[in-house]
Amino acid sequence: MKIRHRDSDSGKIQLEMTPMIDIVFQLLVFFIMTFKVVAVEGDFNIKMPRMSAGGAPSDQLIPPLRVRLTTPQDPNAPVCGIYFGQRQLASFEDLRNEVAATVGGGGPNADADEYEVELDCDFDLPYRFVIDAITAVSGYRDPSSGQIVPLVRKIKFAPPRQASGG
């Protein structure tokens, strides 16, 4: 019986690369087109059952620290009206200092869960000021270590005020 020998010297076996490169480029184009730079987002957690929102007594021993935020005349103003108790403050930095002084500086002996902040906001107040206020009362970044020092973890809203238009 004769065995046919394949002529191995006739040429290299070549893989057909074109379809693979086509698909790879299509995938690349798809991913580039759908790519979107998304900023990192974080949360401020608030526990607000219905009862405490209506002003019913909570299990908090110390009365909440009241922070009143009023709408500025200019909607693009960098700061809104801030009242801590009865005192008007000039900036959220002042609010942070006041809260830090009240709760004990946020040091190791301070109990961040012992205090609660109640935000009383105007209806028309731009929401960014609320986040600024929550940031101010939640804590601060220690400039020397870069660590976040917590101040108050419990935050709630006072019952909403009526819209200025009606």
């Binding site: 900023a39 990192v40 974080g42 957690n45 526990k47 607000m48 219905r50 986040i131 809203f157």
Partner: peptide, 18 residues
């Protein structure tokens, strides 16, 4: 928040950009 409370939800996370 009030609408959520009426339905029975009570935990909220206010989201902000880092």
């Amino acid at each position: 928040i009030e609408t959520c409370q009426e339905v029975g939800f009570e935990q909220f996370a206010l989201r902000a950009q880092q």
